[in-house]
Amino acid sequence: MVKIGIILGSTRPGRNGEAVARWVYDVASQRTDVEFELVDLLDYNLPHLDEMMPPSMGQYAQPHTQAWASKIASFDGFVMVTPEYNHSTSGALKNAIDFLYGEWNNKAVGFVGYGSVGGTRAVEHLRLIAAELQMADVRAQVALSLFTDFENFSTFKPGQHQVDSLNATLDQVQAWSAALAPLRAA
């Protein structure tokens, strides 16, 4: 069975991302053909990148990097839940991505963005990063607006059309994750 990690890409106090990631997980968990797991960056307490060797070498010295690498290696694909800060993703998510290399390779990734313009600029940056990591980013994405999908910019209340967008994203991540399995096995 394909295993997909839903990565909560914000560590900010009072973050909207927690409600968004739980919604993604709740919708995804209704499927019986894929296994999903919510991965909260707060649980990994990653400092600013502190490995001496480049991640492409796969020689991780720090216990926190080894734990993070083990978790990411256990998945066939990902859904990244990202806020948009200053036209990009969060520093915490970028840092977590930068810790590793091979563990991301040949895996599918989909995106759920949130912000004033739906997190679309953050997602565009993540697509560029995914390409460098040899990830297959899917076309479908979810763009949640702080103006229409949140009450008072803080209480998450997505419209039904967002569930449809999420399901399309999950469909594509599942299909591409399965299709890339032979490359991961090689």
Rank of each mutant, 00 (worst) to 15 (best):
M135P: 11
V20N: 01
F78E: 09
H125N: 15
E103Q: 15
S116W: 07
Q59M: 14
V20E: 04
L126R: 03
A130P: 01
L183Y: 12
L126Q: 07
F153R: 13
T89N: 13
A140L: 01
Q160K: 13
E103W: 11
T155F: 08
L166C: 09
D76Q: 06
T11Q: 03
V117Q: 10
V123Y: 11
D40K: 11
D149V: 08
A186S: 07
A179C: 01
A19W: 04
N45H: 12
T155R: 14
W176R: 06
G115Q: 04
D171Q: 10
L8M: 10
A96N: 07
I7Q: 11
A143H: 06
M1A: 06
P47H: 03
D40A: 09
G58F: 02
A185K: 13
H48G: 03
G113T: 04
E84T: 12
S29Y: 03
L41H: 01
I6F: 00
E132N: 15
A69C: 06
K107S: 03
P182K: 04
Y44N: 08
H87S: 14
G5S: 09
Q62N: 15
L8W: 00
M53Q: 15
V142Y: 00
A73L: 13
G119W: 02
E132C: 05
V163F: 02
Y85M: 08
L183M: 12
I6Y: 01
F99V: 10
